[in-house]
């Protein structure tokens, strides 16, 4: 009796990757392959893609050129010309963005360009009028001024730029104001940065869950998660290496809470293997630092070096086994849900 095949696989989108795979496996003739490729990737798709790439590259180069221009000329240019040119640039970008509309990529890129030029304006302002203000005021002011545009843009790249400004502003504020007063340990800086980025990550996940078109790409999640893990790994590593509870204890506690919560969130709520893998990799790094600290305190002879090699293999193997297990369970859960 012929086996009944599950034809739901035919309902998936036909991608060029699948066509190549079928061709590699001799399931399509040369002519069928060529025809399928031209149906899935007609010339129009190539043209649309090429136009998108040229737009991204062209606008990046123009923006970079403008920044270089001001970097070179600011000392000799008259104030009126300096500010006038930047303001004309900002207004032109805003006008262009308005005309094209924020539904188009070109409109969003013009708004991003205007946002970058606000920073250029503030930098030139600071240089011209030497107020003696700390550098953090530039970044804080910049992020405040462009906040409205960030909200209306529905553009992940602009949000990431804005988040970078917030992070930079906070780091500079810490170094230039708080640290000089020796009032707080540096682990609180990393905790504050992590809290800020966790808030944005949460907002991203809410938007992603509601299936907002502009949040369908997953790269912002990866970027934010990596930054959070790095921020909290710093005080944790410091605690392990220096073993001084005054510095690093709360950061480490926060790291542990984040790892537990983050793992559960991406395992059971969002179900994203890439995020789980990042968390597991972070755990491996911290675990190896911890184990290395203990073992090499006991002895640092050749035998311990060899033993540590096996410890590394053991930790990584455990991580891989865990990840494969989780992937399998998630797949089974998906299959049960579909049934």
């Amino acid at each position: 009796m012929e086996e009944k095949l599950d034809t739901t696989v035919l309902k998936q989108l036909a991608s060029i990757k699948i066509i190549h795979k079928l061709y590699n496996d001799d399931l399509l003739s040369d002519e069928a392959f060529k025809t399928a490729s031209s149906i899935i990737q007609p010339t129009e798709h190539w043209i649309a893609w090429a136009r998108k790439m040229l737009l991204l590259l062209g606008s990046s180069l123009i923006l970079a050129g403008i920044i270089f221009f001001f970097a070179y000329n600011w000392s000799v240019m008259r104030k009126l010309i300096k500010f006038g040119l930047i303001e004309v640039g900002i207004i032109s970008c805003l006008f262009g963005s308005y005309q094209l509309g924020l539904k188009k990529l070109s409109g969003k890129i013009l708004l991003l360009s205007a946002s970058i030029l606000i920073g250029v304006f503030l930098a030139v302002f600071g240089q011209t009028y030497q107020t003696g203000a700390d550098a953090f005021t530039l970044f804080v002011g910049w992020s405040f001024l462009i906040f409205g545009w960030v909200i209306i843009s529905k553009f992940a790249a602009l949000w990431i730029v804005w988040i970078i400004l917030i992070n930079t502003g906070l780091i500079l504020y810490w170094n230039q104001v708080l640290d000089t007063r020796n009032s707080l340990e540096s682990e609180f800086l990393f905790m504050a940065l992590a809290i800020i980025n966790i808030s944005f990550l949460f907002l991203y996940e809410v938007g992603n869950k509601k299936q907002y078109e502009w949040l369908k790409n997953i790269w912002p999640r990866g970027l934010l998660l990596i930054s959070i893990l790095i921020y909290l790994s710093i005080p944790t590593t410091k605690l392990i290496v220096e073993v001084e509870l005054e510095e690093g204890f709360f950061g480490t506690l926060f790291w542990i809470i984040l790892i537990i919560f983050g793992y559960r969130y991406y395992r059971f709520k969002i179900i994203d293997m890439n995020s789980i893998a990042l968390i597991i990799l972070n755990i491996c790094v911290i675990a190896l630092i911890f184990l290395g600290r203990i073992l090499f305190d006991i002895s640092d002879d050749g035998g311990m070096i060899l033993f540590f090699a096996f410890v590394v293999l053991g930790v990584i193997s455990t991580a891989i086994y865990w990840l494969k297990n989780v992937a399998k369970k998630m797949k089974n859960e998906n299959t049960e849900d579909d049934q």
């Binding site: 040229l54 737009l55 923006l63 050129g65 221009f69």
Partner: peptide, 22 residues
């Protein structure tokens, strides 16, 4: 830096010009 900035802007405009030609 001044010439570099013009070259950058010129390159960007050229690419946008190619895009428009396409």
């Amino acid at each position: 830096l001044a010439h570099k900035s013009w070259i950058l802007v010129g390159s960007g405009i050229l690419l946008l010009g190619v895009r428009q030609t396409i």
